[in-house]
């Protein structure tokens, strides 16, 4: 390789001198050379680095968004020629009970998922944020579910929540309770599916909170203890406010993901029983790829995009309005 070894400062010095020498003569003229030449050269140098990913972003992200916008104005079933219908797809969507019901189901899913998951993550972080032996092992065990295939884990959880042979009802029977058919009942199916996500991502989110807690200076806690603040007060007055940025990051990314739940629903309930777990992503999938109503599916996916944008912006607003403390 180019020898970069040796004292770096000395190298840089040498370099400076060398440049000085060169700049004395012909370099003067180079300065007067039109800037676009250099710009073109720098562009040419960067192109091979950028080109593959730029092709990817344009072809598989930007162009699809344009196509989905166009498709939402057409009626199409992938086979016969598309038929322009104006805003009709959006019109039927606002009148379609299924779409609103699916959005409502998604909202309930998010509400079953996010608050519990975030509280679990915070609780775990509080438990593990101390210096004691073997905590690394426990931390690893709590993160483990993050590294699982949602489809495969959905199978395992379906088995555990199975009405007849499932673990959960076996355990309940020991306490003398006859458990329900969890995934076959409209009142329990959605919370059970949400619970699987809680299980999968609580430990993962715990890591962010742990990282955030470790940036809080211990002197703050010491000062608070001297002032007579107990552990509960210290948590609510110091830890939680200082975790605001972490909380925002965790909530924004989790809520975006939660609105797009699909894999576990597909495996565990297929949107049922009835429409109890028919979340918006599942509705879009069945509209587009089972009923082949491409225009409506496109319009619905744009609706989901809009909802996610609004919810994300609302979260940023909410967190900005709260006091953030600067600790250096």
């Amino acid at each position: 390789m180019t020898r970069i070894a040796g004292p770096r400062e000395a190298r840089a010095d040498e370099a400076g001198r060398a440049r000085g020498l060169r700049e004395g003569g012909p370099a003067r003229r180079a300065e007067r050379r039109p800037g676009w030449r250099r710009r073109i050269r720098s562009l040419a140098a960067a192109t091979p680095f950028i080109l593959p990913s730029l092709a990817g972003v344009l072809l598989f992200l930007v162009v699809p968004v344009i196509i989905v916008l166009v498709l939402s104005f057409f009626q199409w079933n992938f086979l016969t020629p598309p038929h322009f219908v104006g805003f009709a797809n959006f019109g039927t969507m606002t009148r379609d009970y299924h779409v609103f019901h699916a959005l409502e189901t998604t909202a309930f899913y998010v509400l079953w998922n996010i608050p519990i998951q975030t509280l679990m993550a915070l609780g775990l972080a509080v438990l593990l944020n101390r210096k004691l032996p073997a905590l690394g092992l426990f931390r690893a065990l709590y993160v483990l579910p993050y590294m699982s295939t949602p489809v495969a884990m959905a199978v395992v959880w379906s088995w555990m929540f199975n009405g007849q042979s499932g673990l959960v009802n076996h355990l309940l029977l020991l306490a003398g309770i006859h458990g329900p058919d969890w995934l076959g009942s409209t009142s329990t199916a959605l919370p059970v599916v949400a619970m699987v996500s809680n299980w999968q991502y609580a430990g993962y989110n715990m890591l962010f909170f742990l990282a955030g807690m470790q940036t809080i200076p211990p002197s703050l806690y010491e000062a608070a203890s001297i002032d007579g603040a107990g552990p509960v007060k210290r948590f609510f007055r110091i830890t939680l406010p200082l975790l605001n940025p972490t909380l925002l990051f965790v909530l924004v990314t989790d809520v975006i993901g939660s609105f797009q739940i699909f894999d576990t629903v597909y495996v565990m309930t297929q949107g049922g029983p009835g429409t109890a777990t028919n979340v918006i992503n599942y509705q879009i999938y069945s509209t587009g790829f089972r009923n082949f109503d491409v225009g409506s599916a496109s319009a619905m996916s744009l609706l989901l995009f809009g909802v996610i944008l609004v919810v994300t912006l609302a979260q940023f607003r909410f967190f900005r309005s709260r006091t953030t403390y600067e600790v250096s």
């Binding site: 989905v68 498709l71 797009q260 996916s301 995009f305």
Partner: peptide
């Protein structure tokens, strides 16, 4: 951009 938005196109 949510994943599903790009799936149909």
């Amino acid at each position: 951009v949510p994943n599903i938005v790009t799936i149909v196109p």
